[in-house]
Design a binder for these strands. Sequence first.
DNA 1: CGGATCGAC
DNA 2: CTATGTCGATCCG
Length: 765
Amino acid sequence: MPSSVDSALSKGDILEGSEEIATTGHENSDKGAPVDEPTAPSVSLNDPPRSSSKDIVAAIANHYASPSKPGSTGPTITASRPNFRNKNSGEGKELDAHLLRRLAGPSVGKAGLARDQTEITRLIARASEGSKYYENEKRKSEEVEKKIEGLLKLRDTQRAMADIPRLEASADKIIAELEATRDLSQTIVHVDMDSFYASIEVLRDPSLANKPFGVGSNNGVLSTASYSARAFGVRSGMATYIAKALCPSLIVVHMDWERIGAASEAVMDILREYAGDPDGSMEGTGMDVAGVDEAYVNITGYCKAHEIGAEECVERIRAQIFEETKLTASAGIAPNKMLAKICSERNKPNGQYALSFDPDAIKEFMRVLPIRRIPGIGRVTERLLDAVEIRTCGDIYTHRATLALLDKHLHLREKLAVYLGLGSTQVKPWARESRKSVGAERTFRAIEDPAKIQEKLELVTRELEGDLERLGFAGHTVTLKLKLDTFEARSRAKSARKPVRKYDELLAIGQELLAHELPLRLRLLGLRVTNLKDLRAPETGIKRFFGNPQEAAIRPAKRRKLDVENSDGKDAMKEEPIYILDDESEDDADEQPQTKRAATATPEKPRTQSLPDVEAVPRASSHEPMGSQEFFAATSNQPLGKRKRQPSPSHRDDDSDDIEEVVRHKSDKSSEQHICPICSKTLQTDNAGLNAHVDWCLSRSAILEASASASTSGPSDAAKSLAAQSKKATGAKKTGPAATTAKPGSSKGSTKGGKADIRLAWKVL
DNA sequence: CGGATCGAC
DNA sequence: CTATGTCGATCCG
């Protein structure tokens, strides 16, 4: 194995990444129910590393035949910055450092990795060599290199005639502005389950404890690896056969979506208890489920109400999680989501970390933080920043002039906010109105027979129709997504005059788009609908409800410190008087295509003028209709809603800012009459009650949908459907006991009664 | 608006 | 001889 190279790369700041790799469960549920036999989990102690023509695998196996006792030691964390430059020019065909990292997978940087990450990485690269996947990665890598080249050139020419001190001064001005927006009033915790899938497996089969094993859907890749497996270099996202090469004794278990979903539910329910106003009246409103195994919780109110400190509160949360699920969680406590997330990894396995709320301490914390730790900064961005010598957040300040010069590409303002440790303090449930698209896609063995491709299109279309139906959306634009067998991706879209959602309409458009592309050799085909129309948007009945002057009055008052970003916080408050009481439909009423949907993307002013002298330009604020927004925002969760949203705190300089209103403080009018937008029933309850009901109602329809597809499409589809739910419906009631016991009428359906049942379900599993 | 890319889980 | 699916954001033309 090469060595000279090592010096250049060896200390890969391996720390971080995502614990779990997202997987779908589509494949694993193919064969009926998830593995859950009385017997041992479906382990596949496969054949020893098949010595392929490439004895690379064998080489890897050799290299790691005797890893530094897996359990014995935590990974040696050699803190050092990534170094992408290829200093190993001495060797014949050296693989590009960036490419190596790409091949290493998305989660390189995770905690608990083996020591010499570099060796593993390059061996993996060798093993991958020649595959289409490899070639594609190489191509992409080269594109990035090219972009960097251009960037550096631009920087140099610009710098030649730039007034550096002035650029720095303007950056400092922005810093001052941003600093003024700092909000330390909220205590936010990010709770992250420890190797979730793996831990769940250990619970089912205790004999797995301390053994190196991985959890994967099928033959492909591992979604997660146990800590002892990580000591061998195995990590999430890694191809199973490579993992086996690294760790011959690796055990591979399949995902058990039922359990994962139940466990997730149990955990989220616990968290919801801590996420509410001080009086506890709005339990769950201060929570943001960010995936099956993680969530943000605003514990400000809870701590105040119970007169306890944040750390104690979080200890309590974690203890409760463990007590009720026997699963451990890690957590980060900080004044905003970004920081909380970063902190939750700090003491990863079963630990917590509380960041100081002192601005200077926060800045010091950021100063040494590798840029890659920032949510939103991935492989490519890390590479770009590295090119301009920015590796830690502290480097952002040092090179602020460069960022100013390359603002168009590197976003100075956004980076400065990161440098300051600013982030969103908005913690609330995902609102269905913020959904932008609904889609379905499928990967398969490359095919080129038009008839076969057509079949795939039909399959995907059927799936999409089902999702649209279940979710209650239709869309104006249909996009066909293709991935060639070379991994090259492509997409084609077409907008219809009317929002579409039916199978026939979708298929027709899909076929049209597809026809134009054939012939093809495909490995993936997907269909997606955007420019959504919410079919469950408030109808006249509901509209009246929200038109209620009292509700409207809340609007302007409750404008909270918008997150970072907002060049001019001052007048942001004026021109508030627009309470879109009625009609959310004007939403797609299509008028100003600009105003709404495009609000974020199309600022009223040229987005390019954000460079140096960015003068705060008061823009006409873009208002989101609030009607149903508040309604749903207060809802505790979203069935089948997906996660992830603006990772980075800032947006352009346009203030389209997330009109994130604080929806809480509500009129807790106890008895009011509302009409459920889903089932149309009239309810006698307060807002919370209504929301709870809608919640239940939505999840119920999701379940019905699942059963329906079960009877119409056969068992495999049903299983898939359920799997999809477990994964997507982070907040939705799961099927099974939990779901069937949830009480619709109860104004607290999601809290008391139902919860106990759900937990019971988890324990029973 | 359509297309491509990045990032996240 | 591996590498999903689903979604949001952003940038470009």
